[in-house]
Amino acid sequence: MNKIAVVGAGISGLSMANYLEKHKIDYHIYERRKKRDLAGHGFLIPQEGMDYLSQIIEPELLLKQGNFLKKYIQYSHTGRILAEKNLENVFAISRHSLIDLLTQNISPEKIIYEETIGLEEHDGKLKFSDGADIDADIIVISDGSRSRIRNNLFKDETMKAVRESEVVNIIRNKEIADSIENDFIKFHHEEGGLTFGILKLSDDTVLWYSQFDNEKYMINECSAENLRKYMLEVFENWHPLVSSIIQKSDYKNVHLWRVYELEKLNRFYKNNIVFIGDAAHPLIPFTSQGVTSALKDSFTLTKYLVEENNMEHAFKKYEAERKPEIEVHINNGRTLLEQFLLPINLQTQNILPISYK
């Protein structure tokens, strides 16, 4: 089997490395950030994603690090129940925990941090920061939704800002965690375009996030202190659980996520370079399919690299299998975005903020 370089040590890159490790395929990972910069907030993972994840992580280890959610409960911003829906094995886990679990099966010498990979304009080759060529037959790109490499390789692609931004944070507070059942709770403003979601990750840890219609709610300065003041102001008259979480949170690791999407999908590969996860197909966060899609990309690409003797044939089969499903999630995400922007009385009732194929 050919030598493989994986660019990016996020969820998709580490998933790819785990599947390659499982098949004893030679690889190396290159990540531009420091190791500890790879922490983050959290994810929802539907059952399908858990099935793929359990192939590379021991299920008992996985279950110790997160929570299965029982129900999705939708409230108005004042606490009136709008809808309830049972969830089928949807798992909540922090990004930090999932990164740690995916890293544990990889030898430290196989990951190099603080190494930026770039595309040389004159010869179209990927190189290290010192100008040396990457010593690999296949290069798997997993450098995220704003992939510089994809942007340089496909010059005609168009990324556009989505009419939604998110503020994401984690609060460690046992009293608040004890007051929350193992449910996915989401509060919606009556006029639409503003939500507050809550996920219990463990006995003392809660992930919260707020989605904004960024044409109505413009955040001009995103320092931690400014975000704290903004959240306190915007959510002042919401349900007491929301205001309590906002007031008691530590904002040193708060994150403002400005969401972008591709106007149309490009090919998933070119020459010996192949894209996976958000680098291949950025998904609007309403879908809750980022982790599952990354896992399926990694599994599928590895499968065809093992089965096919010809690299291009493997890439073609990978793209043919994955692209139709990604198109479904993209369309579902746009539908969920349209619903989010509407007043509550015009939204489809009991709509679940998870995309299924």
Rank of each mutant, 00 (worst) to 15 (best):
Met159Ile: 12
Thr348Ala: 08
Asp130Thr: 09
Asp100Lys: 15
Lys34Asp: 07
Ile330Gly: 05
Asn152Ala: 13
Gln104Lys: 14
Glu319Val: 07
Tyr52Phe: 15
Glu308Thr: 01
Ile11Phe: 00
Arg33Tyr: 06
Ser223Gln: 10
Gly144Val: 00
Leu63Ala: 11
Ile45Cys: 03
Asp133Trp: 04
His329Met: 11
Gln65Asn: 13
Ala280His: 10
Ile246Ala: 05
Lys22His: 03
Asn266Trp: 01
Leu265Ser: 07
Ala177Ser: 13
Pro108Arg: 04
Ile81Thr: 10
Ile57Phe: 03
Phe212His: 09
His281Tyr: 12
Asn226Lys: 15
Glu181Leu: 04
Phe154Leu: 03
Ser107Val: 05
Ile176Pro: 13
Thr287Lys: 09
Ala5Ile: 06
Ile170Arg: 07
Ile106Glu: 07
Glu88Ile: 04
Val7Glu: 00
Phe268Arg: 02
Asn67Phe: 00
Asn182Tyr: 13
Asp37Ala: 11
Glu308Pro: 00
Glu321Asp: 13
Ile273Ala: 00
Ser355Asn: 07
Arg172Tyr: 02
Gln47Gly: 06
Gln55Tyr: 01
Ile4Cys: 06
Asn89Thr: 08
Leu82Thr: 00
Asn152Val: 03
Glu31Gln: 06
Asn310Gly: 06
Phe286Leu: 11
Asn309Ile: 04
Arg334Cys: 00
Ser202Thr: 09
Leu201Ser: 04
Asn182Val: 02
Asn89Asp: 11
Asn331Ser: 13
Gly79His: 06
Ile219Ser: 01
Ala314Arg: 02
Gln349Leu: 08
Arg33His: 04
Gln65Ile: 01
Ala132Trp: 00
Ser142Asp: 13
Ile198Leu: 11
Ile117Thr: 05
Ala279Thr: 01
Glu21Val: 00
His23Tyr: 12
Ala9Asn: 05
Leu62Ala: 09
Gly192Tyr: 01
Ile56Phe: 03
Tyr356Asp: 08
Arg33Gln: 05
Ile171Leu: 14
Asn271Glu: 15
Asp51Gln: 12
Glu327Lys: 12
Lys323Asp: 06
Tyr260His: 15
Tyr72Asn: 08
Lys160Gln: 11
Phe286Asn: 14
Ser15Leu: 02
Ser179His: 02
His313Ser: 13
Glu120Asn: 14
Glu115Val: 10
Phe275Met: 10
Ser288Lys: 13
Glu175Ser: 11
Pro46Val: 09
Lys216Phe: 01
Leu102Ala: 06
Glu261Asp: 14
Ile45Ser: 01
Asn332Asp: 14
Gln55Ile: 01
Val206Met: 09
Ala320Thr: 10
Asp250Gly: 03
His28Asp: 00
Val90Glu: 07
Gln55Phe: 01
Lys317Leu: 15
Glu58Leu: 11
Ser293Thr: 15
Lys296Ile: 10
Leu38Phe: 05
Thr158Ala: 13
Ile219Phe: 05
Arg258Val: 15
Tyr209Arg: 05
Arg334His: 10
Ala279Ser: 11
Glu190Cys: 04
Leu101Gly: 11
Ile354Pro: 03
Ile185Phe: 05
Gly42Met: 09
Met16Gln: 12
Leu98Trp: 02
Ile117Gln: 04
Gln65Met: 12
Ile273Thr: 04
Leu262Trp: 04
Gly197Gln: 06
Leu126His: 04
Ile330Cys: 09
Phe268Cys: 08
Phe212Leu: 15
Lys186Gly: 08
Lys317Met: 14
Arg150Met: 07
Ile276Phe: 08
Lys317Val: 07
Glu191His: 10
Phe286Ala: 09
Gly124Cys: 09
